[in-house]
Every structure is written in structure tokens, then in C-alpha cells.
Design a protein around this nucleic acid. Structure first.
Lengths: 232, 232
DNA sequence: CGTCCATTTGAGGTGGATCAACCCTAGTGG
DNA sequence: CCACTAGGGTTGATCCACCTCAAATGGACG
């Protein structure tokens, strides 16, 4: 279905080389595509649109250009665990095996760059630098997952929310302010909490003057040190 | 300290090629060491001995020959999250970056095979097949971590214990029986529960006839289907 | 200006944690 | 060979952090 939609909806801009990420992150994807001269295609998804499903064949690898994406697993009764959020510059959907092990959806309207997984595999078979880079990207995801297991298994609700805020502050703060793309339910499903518990923790931090709101999703951290102290 | 002890305590058997794992798993480590002709050294640790600490430089990569190992992270106040158990045949301590991101300890007396990380890196720089294998091993760890995040974030205590039993049954059952190397506290710290909650869940499964005990750590699964049903 | 969600807040319930005995069993030494 | 001991495991009683259910509030968009 992605291939179908590619023909009908895709902008189909074929691009070579780097993209300018929204933030000063190392441009992992460009570092590959650029070097190896892969063809990258841009594509857009609307809010809540599925990008790929769990266990679906991993045909493409993606990089967020604008927008935000959630990767998640579901239990049969609908309980959801979001494993990570993907923000501009992030690569997602990279698999060593044949299929995606989490589903991915656009959180808001999102544009991605994508390349065929097969072409990356081919490049990795030729160029050991590319192979090394793919390994490093998977290892980076593993590091995040290991940190997140500690959070999910052992941190209190307030510690989880503090960790989340510091992560988002690091990843998407502009001029000391962050504009969260995701709703409280997404945050809860990322942190292993309910949306109400997330809301209460944020209200408490607000009451303590640790953060300020300008709209529920526009947050300013006023005291990162105290937030760090709350984060075990 | 590993290098010191290597000289004083190590059997220092230098081996080439494959080892025979205790179970019919694909012998990932031998598949590398054998092909590339790396020198592997055997080494033993006593129960509860540290193999490496969190954030310690990743000098070696390990494979369990006999025994069992836990990999974990700690919070400052001592709360612990075990990320995985390593059983005979398993490779652990493989890092793409410079340091170990979890600590590792022997659960019981354990013998490992180890190779220098640098020699693996070197081999990966030459042989793209080795590079691919290292990536696949890290990706396998990531898959486990992703599954475990779902467990820690969203499963009930009984579901977690059921998942644990099925995992251990798959990985170390011999003749339909499993001999758990780890104590109830380790199981709790793996599942994000207390040891009492683990014990109660096991007692309940015993009362329902789903499993049998012959000693607290010798378990026979009598009804895998019902266990699967309890596992969301 | 009204509608629709997202968010907040309140009230009460509960699953798993905590605190506390007690009980096995393997290992030790007499 | 058996009594003793220590550490791991089980079970009970109570507590509480977070969940659930419910209602009010707020903000974005037509």
C-alpha cells in the first residue's frame, strides 16, 4: 500500500545528498545517502496516518523532515506501548531483519525522506563504512530502549515525566521553549502511565514553578536542575 | 582489572573456531570467531561476581559457555532494572560505541569465552559479512528490548510472569523441565515487580496446575497453552 | 459563537508494594 | 548421620501510588 500511495500521492521529488535537519543533529541519513548516492524520495503523511504496521515487510527506511512520528506495539486488547518518538532529523524504520517490529504513525502532518531498504543493504554489502553506520544507528536505538526499560520498570510517575520533559527539551527545544507534537495519551503510552497521571504530574510541576505553559503543549522549563533532581 | 585477573586466574586456553553451545542455538559467536580466526580466551566468574560495570570501556565481547549472567542498570538509590539474562550460547557485552551501557554479573558460577572488541572491529572493517553479523546481533538485542518495553509498560504482574516462564522455557528447558539459575529478586528486577509479587504469581500458577515445582527453581510447565492465554 | 476534542481536576477503587512472620532446604559442623 | 544455621522463598496484613470513572474546563477551528 505504500507503493500504491507513492504513485498517487507522493511529491516524488528525487533528491541526492543531504537534507538540512531542523536541528543541529548529526545528519545520519544524509551521511549515508549522500556518500553512496542513493535516491531519496519525499513523502507526506497526515495526522494519525499509519506509515507501516507491526510485522509488515520493511521495504523502506525513513527520516523525518518535518512533523513527528510514534513507533508502538499493541496488545490484543488495545493496550499500547510507544517505544519512541521520531522528530525532525531522526531515522526510523531501519531493520536488520525482514520486517518492522513496531508500527509507526504520524503524530501530526509529517514529511519524510525515504530510501529503499534494499539499496541500503546493497550499499552496506559494498561499503564497510555504510555497514558500520547502520550498526551504529541500531545501537543508538538499543541504548534508548535500555534507558527506557529502566524508566518503565523502576521509575515513579513523577520521575518518568521529569525524564520525558528533559528528553524533549534536549531534542526539540527552540529558544528555551518546546512545542510538543503529541497529546497526553501518547505521552502516557510512552511512559507506561495513564493520560490523567501525566496531566497531574505536569500540573504539579507547574504549581511548583518548575515549568510554564503557554497552551497545553507549549512548555518552558524554568528550572532544569530541579527537574533533574526529580529524575532519580 | 579484567586484564589483571586474566593473567592470574584465567585458564588462558586459546581456542580457534566454534564452541558447542549447550543448546541447538545458532552459534553466533563461533560464526564470527571461526570465520575470522580470532583468538578466544576462556574465563570464569564466581556467583555474584561483576564481569563489567556500567559505563566501563567495552574492551571485550563475551559468550556464555556455562552458567548465567544478568545485565542491569541501577538508579542512584539502588533500584535495579535487569535488561536481560544471558544463558549458555548467548553473546553479551557487544557494543557499537566505546562503553558498556549496562553492568553485567554472574548469576551463578559461570564460564565465558571472550574476544577483544578491537579484533572484532578490525575484522568488521575488512569483512562485510562480519559487519553484517555484528549488526544483526545488536538488532536481536533491540528486538528483545522492544518486547520487554511492552511488558514493563503495559502488562499486568501475571502476564509478566507468564511471559517470563515462556521465555525461559524456550531458552533453557531440557526434557520439559527448566532449572532457573536466578533468584526471585532477579526475576522481579527483570519484570519490574517485587520478589513477593513474583512468588505469589508462581504460587497461583502452581495452585491452578499450570506448573509444577521440584524445588523453588526447578519448574515444569504443565500447560503452555493456558500460560499463553494469561500472556495477553 | 458553537462544537468538538484535548486537557484538567475530582472522587473513589485496586493491583502491586511494603512490612512482617514463618517456612523450607541446602550446606555445615559436630 | 543428624542438629543447627543461614539465605531464599512463601504467605499474610496493610498501605498507597496510580488507575478508573466522572465531570468540568479550555482551546482550536468551523
Amino acid at each position: 500500500m505504500l507503493t500504491e500511495t507513492l504513485n498517487t500521492q507522493a511529491i516524488n521529488t528525487q533528491v541526492r545528498g543531504k537534507i538540512a535537519p531542523a536541528h543541529p543533529v548529526s545528519d545520519q541519513f544524509g551521511a549515508i545517502a549522500g556518500q553512496v548516492g542513493l535516491v531519496a524520495t519525499e513523502f507526506s503523511y497526515r495526522k494519525d496516518e499509519e506509515i507501516y504496521g507491526e510485522d509488515e515487510p520493511a521495504e523502506y527506511v525513513y527520516q523525518v523532515i518535518t512533523g513527528a512520528v510514534r513507533s508502538y506495539k499493541l496488545l490484543s486488547d488495545g493496550r499500547r506501548q510507544i517505544g519512541s518518538f521520531h522528530l525532525p532529523g531522526d531515522v526510523f524504520g531501519l531493520e536488520s531483519g525482514p520486517s518492522h517490529r513496531l508500527a509507526a504513525e504520524a503524530i501530526i502532518d509529517t514529511t519524510v525522506r525515504l530510501v529503499k531498504r534494499a539499496s541500503l543493504e546493497k550499499a552496506a554489502g559494498t561499503d564497510v563504512q555504510v555497514a558500520r553506520k547502520l550498526w551504529a544507528m541500531t545501537a543508538g536505538e538499543l541504548r534508548h530502549a535500555e534507558d527506557h526499560m529502566l524508566l518503565l520498570g523502576r521509575k515513579t510517575a513523577m520521575e518518568r515525566v521529569a525524564t520525558f520533559l528533559l528528553e524533549m527539551d534536549r531534542r526539540l527545544a527552540v529558544a528555551g521553549m518546546m512545542a510538543l507534537p503529541m497529546c497526553r495519551r501518547d505521552i502516557g503510552d510512552y511512559l507506561g502511565l495513564t493520560l490523567e497521571t501525566v496531566s497531574r504530574a505536569l500540573s504539579q510541576l507547574h504549581a511548583q514553578g518548575i515549568l510554564g505553559f503557554s497552551g497545553a503543549r507549549q512548555i518552558v522549563l524554568r528550572n532544569r536542575q530541579r527537574l533533574h533532581n526529580l529524575d532519580a
